[in-house]
Design a binder for these strands. Structure first.
Length: 545
DNA sequence: CCTTCTACCGTGCCTTTTGC
DNA sequence: GCAAAAGGCACGGTAGAAGG
């Protein structure tokens, strides 16, 4: 907008104008002027709140001859001054600063700071507006004088520009005309002292009169009946038109409402979908939480089972100690001699175990005491693991010193079955798939002990031990199987075969591997179980699971 | 010379525009 | 939508011309 400020003729040169401020240096009150200039030149706005009129002692005198001004603190007082195109340096300053985009307030302050006139911001704005108008008029005059010759192509340019601008003005012109006819109707009503005709009626009548096709004044028309009919027709037509307009408006309203309802329905549907999705997500989360909880419970169960197993192993160890004591006591009671300890140089656990098992049999056959020295020898790892360690033997030795009576309880804890020497069992595909295949050597040894079976010999493989246990299962009576199952809270129902299978599974599932989820039927396990792969030779080389 | 009238200026209040 | 700036308008006041 400001680029069009002087009708597009560019910025105004402000320096060449006559500076009446300089010329106003002769003050009305020279002494005051001199003192202010010397002591406090152009400084201070302590009277900023006062109006310029109040500050000006004699405005009329100040502007007499057009150039006199009263110098006040912070510049000259504002006094009426004509707006002319041939402006002075104060106005030139205003123009310059405003063209640079400064606010009225800033310009007013700058004028004061520079010791010029003390205008309030509003006056700066007002002068700026009026100066622009005056300068544009001067510029227009100059253009009309100097640049009235049109050049080639400018007519076409003018026509197209006129079209564009005219388009913008059409609506404005229409509005102005409507206002005009409203005013005509109002003034006419004032003149007739009664409001009889609308703006529209005034306009139509005026145009009809001009065109010469207006109806006669009603009083002068002889066809009163025809006029009446005409009026009724007009009323009916207008009524019909209004009804049509109302119908159209109603139709639009209905359409609008229908669209609104459709939008609402769509929105509702989306909300529904969103709610469904949220519900699904919550359901999945709930399920995941349940799975997590189940896993946690399973883990806890495993931990408890492991603890129970350890407790069982400890109990077995205690039981073995008691058994050993009972054996020693019984031997002494029957033979009057001390029982021979196992040989010191027993090569392997398996060997020793089998020998000891044999010895256990010998116990009942009144064995002599030639092996007594061997019994107190060092034990191997396996012995320690299953309660045959030094400690238990020391305990036995300690007991020897005050062994006067055989505890009746000790006798009852002896195995009811005679322990036979280990005879290797045949490994078959069926025994290889036996649930107990997953059990460790130590666990199998414990099981052998628990079942009162001969200990594992050095050359007896893992699958062979499993097969031997399976044979023992088959050999057991159903009553015995039921008793064994009761340890696992199994009521011992079903056929003997079912009982055997369940016993094997209980043993396996409560082993370390079983608690970790390993099963003899797992392909991974079967691949790693050497006894399973290959022919009979391989089977004989079964290793720890 | 005094009074009246008119044009114009400075300013205040309110509205509109602009920039963020 | 809001605040600041600018614009529009009206009013009070003054200078100066005109008339009595």
């Amino acid at each position: 907008m400001r680029s069009m400020f002087f009708g597009g003729t560019g910025l105004v040169e402000t320096s060449v104008h006559f500076d009446d401020a300089a010329d106003n240096s002769t003050p009305l009150h020279p002494q005051l002027e001199a003192s202010e200039v010397d002591q406090d030149p152009f400084v201070g706005t302590s009277q900023a709140g006062e109006s310029s009129r109040q500050r000006s002692p004699t405005p009329s005198a100040a502007v007499q001859k057009g150039q006199k001004r009263v110098r006040v603190r912070g510049g000259k007082a504002a006094v009426p001054k004509r707006i002319v195109a041939d402006y002075d340096s104060d106005d030139g300053r205003i123009i310059t600063l405003k063209q640079q985009g400064y606010s009225d307030e800033y310009v007013a302050q700058r004028l004061m700071d520079e010791g010029r006139v003390r205008y309030v911001p509003k006056t700066v704005g007002s002068r700026w507006l009026r100066l622009r108008k005056a300068l544009q008029e001067a510029e227009d005059e100059k253009l009309d004088d100097e640049l009235s010759d049109w050049h080639v192509g400018e007519d076409d340019e003018l026509e197209s520009v006129e079209k564009v601008v005219d388009e913008r003005y059409k609506l404005e012109v229409q509005k102005v005309y409507e206002r005009k006819w409203r005013e005509v109707a109002a003034v006419l009503a004032e003149k007739l002292r009664k409001r009889k005709y609308t703006a529209k009626a005034c306009k139509e009548r005026f145009e009809a009169v001009k065109a010469g096709n207006a109806l006669k004044a009603i009083e002068l028309d002889s066809d009163q009946e025809g006029r009446k009919l005409l009026r009724e027709e007009r009323i009916a037509a207008n009524k019909a038109r209004r009804a049509e307009q109302a119908a159209e408006a109603q139709r639009l309203e209905d359409e609008k409402q229908r669209k609104q309802e459709a939008r609402q329905a769509e929105h509702h549907e989306k909300e529904k979908e969103r709610a469904q999705k949220i519900k699904e997500r919550q359901s999945v989360k709930k399920m995941e939480a349940e799975i997590k909880e189940a896993r946690k419970r399973e883990k806890e169960r495993g931990r408890l089972a492991k603890q129970a197993k350890i407790a069982q192993a400890k109990a077995e160890e205690e039981w073995k100690k008691e058994l050993r004591k009972a054996e020693v006591e019984l031997y002494r009671t029957l033979t009057g001699k001390r029982m021979q300890p196992p040989p010191l140089n027993a090569p392997t656990a398996g060997n020793r175990k089998s020998k000891r098992t044999a010895k256990k049999s010998a116990v009942y056959q009144d064995e002599d005491d030639t092996e007594e020295d061997e019994f107190g020898g060092s034990s191997n790892d396996e012995d320690e693991e299953y309660g045959y360690g030094e400690e238990s033997e020391d305990e036995v030795s300690a007991q020897e010193e005050n062994d006067e009576q055989i505890p009746a309880a000790a006798k009852t804890t002896q195995p009811t079955k005679a322990v036979a020497p280990a005879i290797k069992a045949t490994v078959t595909k069926e025994t290889l798939l036996n649930a107990r295949s997953i059990m460790s050597d130590a666990e199998l040894n414990a099981l052998l002990f628990e079942r009162g079976l001969p200990r594992r010999s050095t050359d007896e493989s893992h699958p062979e031990v499993v097969a031997r246990l399976a044979e023992a299962d088959e050999a057991a009576t159903t009553v015995e199987l039921t008793k064994l199952l009761s340890k696992y809270f199994d009521k011992g129902k079903g056929s003997k075969k079912a009982k055997v299978r369940r016993l094997q599974e209980h043993n396996a599932y409560n082993s370390e591997a079983g608690l970790d989820g390993v099963r003899s039927t797992d392909p991974d396990f079967q691949q790693s179980y050497h006894g399973y792969i290959g022919d009979d030779e391989d089977v004989m080389e079964g290793v720890d699971a």
